[in-house]
Design a protein around this nucleic acid. Structure first.
Lengths: 332, 332
DNA sequence: TTGTATGCGTTATCAG
DNA sequence: CTGATAACGCATACAA
């Protein structure tokens, strides 16, 4: 037995099996090899406890079988995305390098650099950084953020989602709506949630108001408290339906309204966006437009790994649907 | 300009700067180099757009500056753990390879293998696999699962946490408790939540019952429905206090009880374990024993990266605390 | 079909 | 203090 500290290499295996190094390589990579050789090699691998070393291959082939995923935080929606991207990669025998930029543009840039330095085969990026620079010679797919024709973007059908929400509220009896929309100053695919809301309200001919707050850290929970308080008179909100740009905003709007003695969904009905569930798998926390997270993840992965990176659609919108989370009335 | 497709290497930089390859390496690694050389090299790096290649270094040094984290799922607790481990690693300029075993023991084993093949510098593993085998020559830290003296285990103070919960329920007026405990057949650190519950009930001299369900997939949401239904008579539960092994169990127990017309916390008070918040950052979903996730993450990372891997404590229990989530009464 | 030899990008040793 | 050179583990073109 050789040095127990030094991990055995293909060369050790070759020596042990009495074959050539390249034969070992072929066996390991499931290439054509005589059956007797394969047996001998596998036996040697077993007896030496040989473990494949991916850095060698990565160096030699410039392929690491690793994909980087960059997300801003571990918000439940991102957590679910991480899960499904991981599963999709795992199914293809790829490995995932996870970067969480912590809503910090500088760190996000570092993440990109680190991903490139680690020779990842591609980057899936969900970022709101307005000044993001894309590394050259690296295949990249973005989520919710369209950069250019060359960089595929995967997103949910934000425009249609808002329309579904507005029509749902209308069907359930709402006649005066408000949009609570918080966002970065950046125009992204998510901005279309606002467009869809306005479009649908016009279409239905109902009055509406939009409250838009430009806020880098979109996850502050008290963002709309002032707005809501200002629009409550004699214990009644000025609107009978609320559409919120996220489930988070919807959840906290509901909390605030209930604090003020307003009943949901009896007095005001609320719909959010994302499809967040309790513990990631239970009931929806609010009535919501559900993003097809698994399909988004699957699309990102298959896109980033597809051979002809050039000939792909540059914007892919996946269908969304309404789900009841108790903040809207039941259909009669 | 050289081939635009081929990424420049240190050799290219050296040529461009008119210095030796090893000088470039020293500049890149911040080693002692004459100031004039450093300037020339940095200039060449800039002009060529040189990017460091980590595979080369990993191959040469067997150090990848990458740590693998293995978790069973993206349950909110794990999501938070992922976040904090990522942050702790990022602060130290380490990169994270994330594996999600999907509660599948076979896949978990593959994850371990992949981690080793990718030359990670260490593995942080949260696993309930009873037959987990630890790769040799790899430093590993486990969470909630004690294997042996050689493998450090980081966990929250499960025993004390249960005692806190029981005492809290007692202080708030509960006199007959039940424990809802679901677990794998494996004895882990988490098992001590049961021990602590029983111990505290004895200490206080109050009657109690424990309902234990051995269930591989501990996150089924209707696990205790039958038990609860069987113990409701005339609209009253047989117990006035419930301690649950997780916030998930507590959440669904509350839902079930409310369905049956039982008020919480007026009729029954419920405490869970973990410290799950709405959207990861808002209110606690149920009253709970909060795990110090950030400290757990930080401890795992500093342990796995510490120089003397041998001379470390093999079991580290971090302190927990109670937090009100609305399923217990307010203190008078 | 199997073996030999070379180089991927980096670090580290050693000589200048 | 800097420069030339030899590995690290693997894949592959080419020779046998």
């Amino acid at each position: 037995m050789a040095e127990p500290n030094n991990k055995p290499t293909m060369e050790d295996v070759a020596r042990e099996a009495g074959v050539a190094l390249s034969t070992v390589s072929k066996v390991v990579n499931n290439q054509r090899v005589g059956e007797g050789y394969r047996l001998k090699v596998n036996k040697a691998i077993e007896s030496l406890g040989y473990r494949y070393n991916n850095s060698g291959r990565a160096l030699r082939t410039s392929k690491s079988s690793t994909i980087a995923l960059i997300v801003p935080s571990m918000h439940p929606f991102f957590a679910k995305l991480v899960y499904h991207v991981n599963a999709a990669l795992s199914r293809r025998n790829y490995t995932m390098m996870l970067f969480i930029s912590q809503d910090d543009y500088a760190r996000e840039k570092e993440c990109m650099q680190l991903a490139v330095e680690n020779q990842v085969d591609g980057i899936i990026a969900l970022t709101y950084n307005p000044s993001l620079e894309i590394p050259k010679n690296t295949s990249i797919v973005t989520i919710d953020r369209f950069f250019s024709q060359e960089i595929p973007c995967v997103t949910s059908d934000n425009f249609e989602g808002s329309r579904i929400a507005v029509h749902k509220l209308y069907e359930l009896g709402c006649r005066k709506l408000a949009l609570l929309y918080s966002c970065s100053q950046l125009r992204t695919e998510v901005s279309k949630r606002k467009d869809g809301f306005i479009s649908a309200c016009h279409e239905l001919g109902i009055p509406f108001e939009t409250k838009e707050i430009v806020e880098a850290r979109a996850r502050r929970i008290d963002l709309f408290d002032d707005f809501l308080a200002a629009h409550v008179h004699d214990g009644r909100l000025d609107y009978d339906g609320l559409f919120c740009c996220s489930d988070l905003a919807a959840w906290y709007a509901c909390n605030k309204l209930r604090e003020m003695g307003i009943r949901i969904p009896e007095d005001v009905q609320v719909i959010g966006y994302d499809g967040i569930r309790a513990f990631g798998e239970g009931d929806y926390l609010v009535s919501t437009i559900v993003q097809p997270v698994q399909e988004i993840a699957e699309t990102c992965v298959s896109t980033i790994l597809s051979e002809d990176f050039s000939s792909r659609p540059s914007l892919i919108c996946l269908p969304v649907e309404f789900a009841d989370g108790g903040t809207t009335k039941k259909m009669p």
